[in-house]
Amino acid sequence: MDLPEFACFSPFLPAEWGAAHGVRLRRLARLPATASRAAREGRCTYAANAVELARAFLAGGGAGAVFTTSCDQMRRSAELLAPAERVFLFNLPHTWETPLPHRLYRQELLRLSGFFCRAGGRAFSEEELVAAMRRFDEARRELLARQERLRAAAFARQLFAFHERADGSLPEAGLDEAGPARGPGIAVLGGPLLERDLWLFDLIEESGGRVLLNATDTGERTLPRCFDRGRLAADPLGELADAYFGHIPDVFRRPNSELFRYLRRELEARAVHGAVLVMPVWCDFWRAEAERLRAWLPCPLAAIDLADDANGRERARTRVQALLETIS
């Protein structure tokens, strides 16, 4: 029998939590061809696309959709979906410096557990959770190990596929015959990407750069930390919550200092010469940080709006080429 499936869009929602409940918590990134492309002023393009994806998913027999309150746009987008009983809004705390938000995150996981169970999932056992966590953890380690052998877009596709499968299995290795690109190292930062946005990585590499870090919301930055085997055995839910909520740096978190700490660490570890910041149109969180990043980064930055049109791509091409000319 097919497992009940749930759509989601946030890296803070552990797919292994779904797996422990006998459901697939699939993070979607492939926009259906029928999706409306009309943007409404003020509405984040990613949030609008998430609504389209969730609608199509629910209409196609999906058991439910899980949104988070990571930003006002996603929080309010959940309200646009129907029927409401098939939509779960996960209260994702923005603060993190005190015990309360960590407790709240854990409580929300348990509330999500109830939603899964009401929609065809089963109550989780600790053994199943531990097994699922081990499986996903190993898969992520393997996935990261592939990174060096892949071009950036191919690696991003592997990440998308892993998140969409949501069963802990990895897609075929599909190694690039061409091998990794050469050229000045580029870090790509910013908001979430959809699969159709991956032209950006190709563009960077075609323009003579090499993407050394995918620190977008759908890149390696938002993978949870590796599980500690001791804590995994002693308190799997606590370990799950800490690996995700306790460690994923993101722009919406208050303060967002961990994002900067992460970037400093990763940029120092790799020979990055330039950065590309990608922002969904009307994404306040990333847009607000663009100038701060420009001043703070040790390398030049090109900020790009992920506009869903030919003009947007052309603007992006110009900026990326200008960046690479600057640093080459």
Binding site: T69, D72, N91, H94, T95, R254, P255, F285, A288, E289
Partner: peptide, 19 residues
């Protein structure tokens, strides 16, 4: 500053202030 279920603009602007 309250954050979480607030408007993104305010949270983003307050974060810049903090920055």
């Amino acid at each position: 500053c309250s954050v979480g279920a607030t408007c993104d603009d305010f949270s983003a602007i307050a974060q810049r202030l903090n920055g």
